[in-house]
């Protein structure tokens, strides 16, 4: 019912606006589980307002390269790889926590990512946090500081770069 008002501003709309609006509205409808007039009457104006306010913001939906088929193919693989790493991470963690000696040797290492987009970097940081023995402490441009439960005695930087590369492979195609 309120949608007429905002279509007048269409020429200057940034690309991110529509996908963000659609996601928000979908989320709202999912939250209610119904498509009644009341739900839409509140949902549409609210989604419009938020999408407008955050039109230049960061979103894992709007930044995704929908036009590239490679990206569409990489996304499920990324998810699969991610969940596999999450399970491995927890088993490794269980080994450390449950062993009486508590075999840890922590340290903070630094690694450089080849990802360019903000969203790609953010997802990389999140993925690192949830994978075996690593925790992102700081994201500073292309540098990522990572806390490791067990720092490899030799070639610290190389080992970390390998962890990054596992995710970058997919994120590079998805977000750049």
């Amino acid at each position: 019912m309120d949608s007429n008002r905002s279509t007048s501003a269409k020429p200057e709309l940034p690309i991110g606006f529509l996908p963000l609006f659609a996601t928000l509205l979908l989320l709202w409808i999912l939250l209610h589980g119904s498509l009644s007039l009341q739900v839409l009457a509140i949902g549409i104006p609210a989604a419009l307002a938020i999408a407008w306010l955050f039109r230049d913001g960061l979103s894992f939906v709007t930044d995704f390269r929908f036009r590239s088929t490679e990206a569409l193919r990489a996304a499920p693989r990324f998810l699969l790889f991610f969940f596999k790493s999450l399970v491995i991470a927890n088993i490794a963690l269980a080994r450390v926590v449950l062993s009486p000696k508590l075999p840890i040797d922590p340290g903070i290492v630094k690694a450089r990512t080849r990802l360019k987009s903000r969203m790609g970097r953010l997802l990389l940081a999140n993925a690192i946090t949830l994978t075996p023995g690593t925790l992102t402490v700081k994201l500073d441009g292309e540098w990522i500081y990572i806390h490791c439960v067990r720092v490899a005695a030799t070639d610290i930087e190389g080992a970390t770069a390998e962890i990054l590369a596992g995710f970058e492979r997919y994120l590079e195609v998805m977000y750049g």
Binding site: L86, V87, A89, N90, L93, A94, V97, L98, L102, I104, P106, I108, T129, L130, G133, T134, L135, V137, H147, V149
Partner: peptide, 22 residues
């Protein structure tokens, strides 16, 4: 258990996040 056993904050965060998420 990780929260209780790990010796410092960063390691506790490691244990806390991974295990609670999964």
């Amino acid at each position: 258990l990780g929260l209780v056993r790990m010796p410092d904050v960063l390691n506790r965060i490691q244990a806390g996040t991974k295990a609670t998420t999964l």
